[in-house]
Each structure stands twice: as C-alpha cells, then as structure tokens.
Amino acid sequence: MSETGGPEHDYEPVPGLPARLPEGEYILWQGAPSSAAVSRHVLKTRWIAGYFAVLVAWNISAGLYDGRQPSEILFSSGALAILSTIGIGLMEAFAWGVQKTTLYTITNKRIVMRIGVALSATFNLPFTRIVSADMREGKNGVGDIALTLLPGDRLSWLVFWPHVRGFRKGALMPQMICLKDVAIAGNVLAAALASTRTPENAARLATPATKQTGRATAGRIIEAAE
C-alpha cells in the first residue's frame, strides 16, 4: 500500500483530501486510528478471545467428566481453537485495514474524514455544522473525539461505522476513533473552533464543561484554548 492508504487514494492531490484546499484554508492536523486500539476497543477482540478460551476449557472439562477419549477431546478443542484464531485474525486484519484506509484532517474551517475499508468515501464536516465535540481519553492517551452536528444532517450508520459513537437526539454522531495522543488533536480542534466563534454561535458552542475524568465537552475544549 502507498502512503496515501492504497492505490484508490493515489488520485488525491493532498493525502486525505479529495481536492486542493481553497485559498485561505490550511491543514492544522492529520491522523489515523491505531489498529491495536481499533481491535481492542471497537472490535473487542480480547473479550472474544476470552470467550473462546472459556469454550475450550469447558469442552475439555466436559470431555473429561463424560469419560471421552483424550484424542476426541484434543480434536474438538483444537477445532475450537482454530476457529477462534481464524475469527480473531480476520478482525485484526479489519482493524489494520481501518488504520491504513482512514485519514482524519482538521483544517482551520472543517474536519475531513476519509473512511471506508471496502468502499472509500470522504466526508466534509464544516465547523458551521458542528454543535459540539466530545473527547474521551484513556489512560494510555488513546481516545476518541465525537461530533454533534446541527439537525438536518442525515448520515448513514452503515457508511460511517466504526467511525461513530451513537445517536444524540436522533442524529448520528461521527467520531474520530482510537487516536494516539488524542489530546493533541483535541487541542488543535479546540483552537480551531474557538477561532471561528462569532457572537451568533458563541452560545451554541460554549456548553458547560464536565468534570468526569478522561472526558471533555466542546465547551471544555474551547475554554482551554482561550
């Protein structure tokens, strides 16, 4: 794969962007998800591996209790182990594909999300359409930034998954997922949103800050940038 994410992205004049930026607009930050974090937090591979481990242990204990032949127990347990390995391997491959084909871009006017493993698509989210941004940071610095958009934006869950958090008031929340050093992206977005504030939208963007650990609303981000 090329540095732009694959042959299908070689046409991009700037990596992650479908066209050159207009005059006066410039890139502030670019980043992609961590494949390890996508595997662990989005696809829950550790939980799935644990589930299969319990199945194998149960199969062995049940076989011994029923008096089955060791060869039968070994065969059935091996089959379960092989199936689990194949399944988890496919999920790890998907997580790798998410990392290689995704590129998030923050400019001074918008967020651009180039996403899609099987079918690549690029979405422009202007700051004027963003109501709030919610950052969640883990202990290792990896985290997500979810975006609440103005009513009227119809987005597809199937198209955006796994780059979504859920719904707020019936509207889909696009999300930049599994970012290493998510605080850096959050600070960049904070400064960019703060610089675009006007008297008309200041009240809309400046929401109360939450005190929960590892979580900040758009208001908290913007306040930190002022």
Results as ranks from 00 to 15, higher is better:
Q99C: 01
A95W: 06
L119W: 14
D134N: 15
G87S: 09
E72H: 10
Y104M: 01
V131W: 04
L103P: 05
R110W: 07
A79R: 11
I86G: 07
I86D: 12
T101M: 01
L103Y: 03
W96T: 10
T105R: 04
I86N: 08
Q99V: 01
Q99I: 00
P126K: 07
A81L: 15
G78F: 10
Q69V: 00
L125H: 11
R129N: 14
M91P: 03
A79E: 11
I130V: 15
R110I: 03
Q69S: 10
E72L: 03
T107A: 02
T107G: 02
E137W: 06
F75L: 13
N108Q: 04
S132V: 05
A118G: 07
R136W: 11
R68F: 03
S84F: 09
R68M: 05
G87C: 08
L103M: 10
K109H: 09
G78P: 07
G97I: 03
W96D: 01
P126M: 02
A93I: 12
A93L: 14
A133T: 13
I111P: 02
M135V: 15
L103I: 13
G78W: 11
R68G: 00
M91F: 14
T101R: 08
I88T: 13
F75C: 02
G116M: 01
V117S: 05
